[in-house]
Amino acid sequence: MKKLVLTAAALVMSAGMALAGSHATTVRMGTEGAYPPYNFINDAGEVDGFERELGDELCKRAGLTCEWVTNDWDSIIPNLVSGNYDTIIAGMSITPERDEVIDFTQEYIPGSPSAYVALSDDVDTTGGVIAAQTATIQAGYVADSGATLVEFATADETIAAVRNGEADAVLADKDFLAPIVAESGGELKFVGEDVVIGGGVGMGVRESDTELKAKFNAAIQSMKDDGSLNALIKKWFGEDAQTF
């Protein structure tokens, strides 16, 4: 038994030495892949969307080799702090709760509003039944607003709940809802006032990873300065989208 352990240790050691030489900086970009147009899996099965294009450009500017990985939304932060990937670039709004656990780069999308969508105009957004996705900032907002919160596991189900009458309205990011409303043929419409809940959207990094954060901050700043970030936002979110 002792011999077995020693051999195993020797193997591990030699493998470690062989790999220590080729210590390149591959940055693993974690995203959800289910939140168009921020990020989604395109029909070819690859990560696509605004954040794919943005992330690739940022990595180019920062001189990093990047690789894309998808992770379930619910465990996206635990897997970052556990080191399974190095950044979160998944349309994540900067909130104080999240900021306590991880660090954010500067915003790459200005604070985007959330909006209510319903079948008819006469919906009571503070007293009715409002659907939201579990564990989103919108779910927390609805719970505080006094409305009856109904939580679904996915964003798709929240829209379906409004369509079939389970909920009076859904509260979600306006950028996510806009194409759905536009293509519903007048069935769905925005109601009530838009609400701004979280801060802007930034990239999440581990608190101990200050070097990486600085690199991405610089890259985002350079994209802001030369106007390419605004162009990218307009390309994916339409001409009316808020820019810097």
Binding site: G16, L19, S22, H23, G83, D86, R206, S208
Partner: peptide
């Protein structure tokens, strides 16, 4: 954060 040395990552980030 759970931070181990780069060589101990499983699998290596490269």
């Amino acid at each position: 954060d759970f931070v181990v040395c780069p060589a101990a990552k499983m699998p290596l980030s490269t």
